[in-house]
């Protein structure tokens, strides 16, 4: 059975999974930090304290986190079609992947920012720092280990999402396991894809832990 596997196909599927995860991860990192910052800054003791804005952002984040990923993909079909020009292939999976995981990561960013010592933010204010300086030179660097651990957790969830997206035509290991494995009763192939996905998850976890430890000078 395994002899029938075309290794080029397997390599391509692995590459697609990596590609989708990495690009989606970059998008999630940026969008999630923006969301997390907005949540933190507009909150009760935030610099931009704003009850209604906080409520709106919080509601949007909660709604998108509540939608099951597979349904989110369907819901986003028109948007994806408009943005990418197709609803098939790895690129078509990106909008759903980013929109699906950024709210989750945004909450993790918010938690990370809350952990930053209020006294340090106050010290920066007492030195005459602008809000921009406080964000880029205090809040983000001081919460960086938490932001990295958070993105590691998100990356692993994203690998799972790519497999789900794969099942409806995005390519990658999930798609390969479904169409070439499950549909053809080739369970060895399904197993092989699983092992590859687990290895990918381990790689992300290892890199994330390493960076977080290196950055943490506390």
């Amino acid at each position: 059975m395994l002899n029938d596997i075309k290794f080029e196909d397997l390599i391509e599927a692995t590459y697609d999974t990596f590609y989708m995860t990495l690009i989606a991860l970059i998008g999630t990192f940026i969008l999630g930090i923006i969301l997390g910052l907005l949540l933190y800054l507009t909150s009760k003791d935030g610099i931009w304290k704003n009850k209604s804005l906080h409520f709106v952002i919080s509601a949007v984040v909660n709604i998108f986190r509540a939608i099951p990923f597979i349904i989110l993909i369907f819901l986003l079909f028109p948007f994806t079609d408009f943005l990418i020009g197709t609803i098939r292939g790895p690129n078509a999976a990106l909008p759903a992947l980013i929109i699906g995981s950024a709210p989750f990561y945004g909450r993790l960013v918010e938690i990370g920012l809350r952990e930053v010592d209020k006294g340090v933010v106050e010290a920066a204010k007492a030195m005459g720092a602008k809000t921009r300086t406080i964000i880029f030179k205090v809040l983000l660097p001081e919460s960086m280990p938490a932001l990295i651990s958070g993105i590691t957790v998100t990356a692993i969830a994203l690998v799972g999402y790519t497999a789900m997206a794969g099942a409806i035509g995005a390519g990658g290991l999930g798609s390969y396991a479904y169409y070439s494995g499950f549909m053809r009763r080739d369970f060895d192939l399904v197993f092989l894809c699983t092992v590859l996905i687990v290895i990918i998850v381990f790689i992300f976890q290892f890199i994330g832990d390493m960076i977080a430890t290196k950055l943490d000078k506390r």
Partner: peptide, 9 residues
């Protein structure tokens, strides 16, 4: 400040 409030990073 009492608790110094240095940036640990």
């Amino acid at each position: 400040f009492q608790h110094f409030n240095l940036l640990w990073s």
